[in-house]
Structures are given as C-alpha cells and as structure tokens.
Design a protein around this nucleic acid. Structure first.
Lengths: 254, 254
DNA sequence: CGCGATCTTTGACCCAAGTCAACCCCGGAG
DNA sequence: CTCCGGGGTTGACTTGGGTCAAAGATCGCG
C-alpha cells in the first residue's frame, strides 16, 4: 500500500504541475502499476480496454471522516476503492443510522443506486479511489461486455451478502451477530502480524452495522474475551483465539 | 392471469401429448402472448432474441406450499415468475427463518446465488415460471448484451431494496416496519377493487420478513385498525385508509 | 508530559417486543 | 350441521437488549 500511495501521489503531483483546475486523470501506466487492480473490476480488462478505462477515470483521496458519497445526491459517478476503508450507511430522518457495509480496496461503489445514491459513504481512514462518470462508463460498457459481466457478478455477490445480512439483522441474537461480523471481517481484511485483526471502524460503526448499540457491542466483546474466544491487543485490534467456537455461535448453534 | 394460465396449460398439454419425459419447452408464440412479458426481463428482447430465449426456457407451475428453490442446492437455473407469488427465505440451523423477499409476476430469481442457491423459494399461491439453465443462459447472454444490461439493472434494483430492508431490520421499530411493508406491498401488488390490498402471505411470513413475531404483527395491525390507518375487509385483505400517516410512521417521523 | 476530547467499558434500570397460553374464527370434511 | 384443525387474536408475564449515567482508556496536541 505504501508503494501504491507513493505512485498515486506522483500522479497527483503531475496533474497539479500541469493543470491545477482539471482533475487528476489516470494514465494507463498508473493503472498497470496499481496494486489494487488484481482485486478490482479492472482485473478482467485487457491492456487496450484498460487504457480506455483509465482515460475516463479520475483518482482522488479523501481523509478520515470525510463523506464522499451522500444519500440523495444525483448518482453521477461510480467509485472503485484502491486503498483504505469506508463505511456505507443509510439514515432515518431522526438520525438513526444503518451501516449497510464496509468498503475496502477493490470494492466497487455505486451499483446500488438509481437516479440518486441510496446510501452515503464516509472514509474510516484515508481512502483513495478511481471515479468514473456514469455517462462515460455507459459508453465504455457498450464496447466491453467483459466489464459488464464483471459488474453483474459483483452485484450478484453483493446481493448474496445483503441477504446474509438480512438474516443477521432479522433473526440473530447479539452474540451471534458479533461473532458473524468478526469472522466475516477476518475473511475480508488482510490479517496483520500474529493473526491480528485490525478494525478500522469504531464501536459505533459496528453497532450501526449490526443493528445494536455500542454498549451491547462492548459488553458482548467483553464476554467473548472472558470466555477466551478472542483477545484484545489494542483498542481496534484483536486476535481470534477460537474461530471454531465463534463460527458455531455465528450459526446460532449455541 | 386466467388467460395466461390457460395458454400455459395448452403448452403443457402439447408437451405431454408428444413427449412426456421432456419438459414443456416454450414456443416463441407463447412468449409473444405472455402477459408477464412486459414486466419481465424479456421485455427488452427483439423478436429474434425472444425466439432464441424461448428455446432455452422451460415453463412449469408449482402449487401453494411447494418449494421450488432450495438453499444449498446447486444453482443450475434462473427463474422468471410469470404468475403467482412466492416467498424467498433463508434458515438458521435451529429453524429461525428470515424471509428476504416476496417474488411476484415479472420477478427474476437466482441472481443472488453463487455455485449454490443461498435462499429457498416457496409458492404462496400457485406459481408459474419460466426456467433457464444457467449454462444455456450464459451462451445467450454472450450474444445479447441488452439482456445482460437488463439483468444488471435488475440486480442493482434488488440491491437498493436489500439495503432499504437492512435499514428496516436494523433500525426501525415494529410499527415502522409494518407501515413500511404495507406501503411497499401496495406499490408492487396490483390493487384489487375498492383499493383493496391482497396479502397472499400469512402473518408468519410477514413476521419472518420483518424480523418480528406473529403476535407483534397481529397486535400492530390491530393498533393500526383502532387508529383507522387501515381497515380489514377479510383475513388477508385490507384497505389503507391513511397512507400519508402510514408513510410518516414508516419513515420514523412519529 | 499532561490536558482535554473522544471513545470505551461497566453498572443499574427500563421497556419494546418476545414468550407462553388461552381463546376465537373460519373453512373444509364428513 | 357439526366437528376439527390451522391460522389469527388477545392477554399476562418475561427478557434481551436499549437507555441512562458515571467512570476509565486512549490519543492527538500544545
């Protein structure tokens, strides 16, 4: 990631030197170097198509806490996360929040949108992404069925996850929800040294993702620690000691 | 619907007469007559493509209570509902059930699946559908980008609904959930005479959809009746008297 | 290095919805 | 017409997780 951020900075630097008003367009070379490519939609693209795509994409970064997609705004862009973690969420008028997912490197955002975005996205740590204008992407897709197929696969996979989450929110108990979350996050997040699990989100984010409160998250984590299912190495860093048992809890088997 | 069922029966009749072992293949003429076409994926197809699609589709019907997709089975087929209503659901090992959606005429099933189905589908009333082998559809999609685009649109729309449902399950109170459900069902279901809303599902199905119990559904419906938000004309048939107020409740505004 | 802000943990109490149980209603079979 | 069985409704009571409150970590910053 350090390498990649350096590469990105170089691109932004180029841009700034040549034309400060226009956004930092991506060069095919930058795409070829991008270490997020193999986990992104772009992985299916041949050199030729990749070059075309790079010309309609714009790289940017946002800092921690910044909102880069706002529910209700015209859904003019798609986003491909190339570094960092973001939370995706929906709000009720009175402020109640449901986090619908966490987006990481390689995730493609904007599929779940009609004319306007139906969710907001906020960076949990510095996030870098490629942005595509919806109108331009449409033209690209016309000539590139592989990409369209890939997007369909992504959307289908997201649907599978969404339904799994409905089961969790509708029918699982608090401890089952948290166990499910820890295991699924372990799947998706690169494990740190010593099998450490990094959680870039706050307890509030986890609570809003699992349909619980921060107090319940805290209490349940403490219970998991007491029964030696997990160990906490830092506030946002823990180790899963007994994944088998956690999986049994997640499935509702005890 | 009556006409359509008759048409289907004719097709099945032909089939049975000629070759009992093989399934009832659809003829292009049957597709042209199909009154579910305009609301289905097939609506985007030209006559030529429609004819091709018809040759890889198989019509069948299932009776009330029959399960025609089983979670965990190899996901070999896609389904396009052409009549009736089905519930889609997931189960936990101990039997807890989450209904992830109700499928009606025009709905396309099987997008949310990897190698195996991740949900089950059961007919709530007699259901008719066209079934496509996944392998055959893949070949068809290769030559028919409109269809692929349409499937992507369908998947995206389902994703929007899924996220809305996550908000409901994670953050809404019982009365807000029920109000949301009644209004969304009113949107999708053809209104009966006198603005009547037909509910082909049982209280149990509604409860499993909203992450509640039948008792809570029953009590909340009674409360809505008492405050004259709705009126009940039969066990599974009601009228929305005050949609504005229901919408305010659904949004969490009171 | 120590201050203040923010996040987390823990405890005491409460309540929305779940559980358990009795009864009702309706529709189909005999 | 009556019986029977499977929803559906309603009431009494319980409870898992929410709410409120206070104290304890953690971290950025001057």
């Amino acid at each position: 990631m350090a390498l990649s951020i350096a590469a990105r900075s170089a691109v932004a630097g180029q841009m700034r030197a040549s034309e400060a008003a226009s956004p930092p367009l991506v060069t095919p070379e930058a795409c070829a170097r991008c270490e997020a490519r193999e986990v992104s939609v772009c992985s299916v693209l041949s050199g030729d198509d990749l070059a075309r795509l790079s010309h309609i994409s714009v790289v940017s970064t946002v800092g921690e806490g910044e909102t880069f997609i706002t529910e209700g705004d015209p859904a003019d862009h798609f986003f491909n996360i190339t570094a960092g973690t973001a939370k995706l969420y929906k709000l009720l008028p009175d402020g109640r929040c449901q986090v619908t997912g966490f987006a990481r490197t390689g995730d493609f955002l904007g599929l779940a949108a009609g004319a306007v975005y139906v969710f907001s996205a906020e960076a949990l740590e510095p996030v870098r992404f490629c942005r595509f204008a919806r109108s331009k992407l449409r033209g690209f897709l016309r000539d590139c069925p592989e990409m369209e197929r890939r997007l369909l696969d992504l959307a289908r996979n997201e649907l599978v996850l969404a339904q799994e989450q409905m089961l969790l929110l509708g029918r699982k108990r608090a401890r089952e929800r948290l166990a499910s979350f820890l295991l699924s996050w372990q799947q998706r997040a690169a494990p740190g040294p010593g099998n450490r699990l990094m959680l870039p989100m706050t307890r509030t984010d986890i609570a809003d993702y699992l349909g619980l409160t921060i107090e319940t998250i805290s209490r349940t984590l403490s219970a998991f620690k007491k029964t030696r299912l997990i160990a906490q190495t830092a506030l946002s860093e823990l180790i899963i000691l007994n994944g088998t048992e956690l999986a049994a809890i997640a499935a509702g088997d005890r």
